[in-house]
Amino acid sequence: MKIRHDGKTLNVSDLDQLGTMNRQSFNSELAAALPMGIDRIVIDLSRTGYMDCGGLGALIALRNCARRRHGNVAIRLLNPTPPVRHIFKLTHLDRVFPIESG
């Protein structure tokens, strides 16, 4: 995956899959790359073909970590595919991770 720091935003993209199988590496990579002074993280899910509950857990872990370090950090999901959107709606996590298209 690609991580790009852009002022107060951290952009994450090119994430092929996010699930139980790679959640640990996702979290440790991001934790290491989390810069100071950001107030939002945007995750581009347009290329993400697979997400399961483990992946949801990874995003929550990311949110908890970011908030601990930098206070109020918003996490947004960009262009999730329909199946991925479905799992967020099922678990009501679309309230925690606002979905954007664009």
């Binding site: 949801l56 929550i60 872990a61 099922l90 009501h92 996590l93």
Partner: peptide, 19 residues
Amino acid sequence: DLPPLEEEHGRGLFIIRSV
């Protein structure tokens, strides 16, 4: 039930039951 929103684990069974 669904676990609290900040909880990292525990949604798998709920999902199975839901779908």
